[in-house]
Amino acid sequence: MDLLRATLRMAAPLLYAALGGAWTQQTGILNIGQEGAMLLASFFAILGNYHLGGWIAGVACAVAASLAYNLLFGLLCVTLRSNVWVVGMTLNVLADNVVMILMKYFFHTKGGFRDPSIVPMPEVSLSFLPDWLDGLSIAVWGAFAVLAVMLWIDRNTVFGMRLKGAGNNEEALASAGVSPARMRYRTLLVNGVLVGIAGAYLSTSYLLAFVSGMSAGRGWIAVAAVIFGDGRLGWTVVGVFLFGLAQAAGIELQSHGFSSHLTLMLPYLLVIVALVAKQWRLPGRLHAPGRKTPHSGESHTKR
């Protein structure tokens, strides 16, 4: 049960970013800027929390920063139709360095910042919950709430259909009077909010400090989960939990004397195996007629 609890704690930030990324992927944008957005949000959460006081201010700052970042991504990739890979990589590097400059400016240090006055996000403590679910951060529960809401919207609403329309056949969507670009911006905004919360969770719930580079590849894992799920929420979530479980299990195994070389590899190995296995089982899917591959944003460049 402790293993499950650890999995939940570790999977929560991935879940936010993967869910947000899955929707942008549905509209044809593989959002590879997640790593930078998460790092930026982690920093702004600490900044807001410390200077304005309170975890809500922290989360608000984190979400605002992440929204701005995602809007910039949208401006470059949707409006100006640049290549998502180039833009994503650039923004990731940019976020890393912007954080460094701001760290220096606000906290006069570059490596890390911690302060006793930082307020943690609240934990959900209810008497009827079993021990292993009790006392988890509100952000962990929030991730599941978001998952439920998004699943429902995805399956049952017109909005959910239009998302897929923007990715699969934007001419059809446009002829129905809906702007595909607007759909893309909407998913980027949703993604911005979600990744903002993920970043705030990392720095003001999981830890009460900012350490440079603390997103530590989580944004990339979320991207891998999105690719694994090909934009479908269900499979993306499966990918996230596989990874979270592998991480938790890897730590558990190390405590019992297994070599770190093997156990640290476990989550990544699993991602590769899962990706290969999936493509193996569904060889025709990606090339099914009438369906453009949504990768790399080319699907919405004018041809």
């Binding site: 570790m10 830890l207 440079s212 603390m214 530590a216 730590i251 558990e252 190390q254 405590s255």
Partner: peptide, 12 residues
Amino acid sequence: NDPARGKEMALN
């Protein structure tokens, strides 16, 4: 620079 995982490991 992955304090989150460092914490998880210490808890474990």
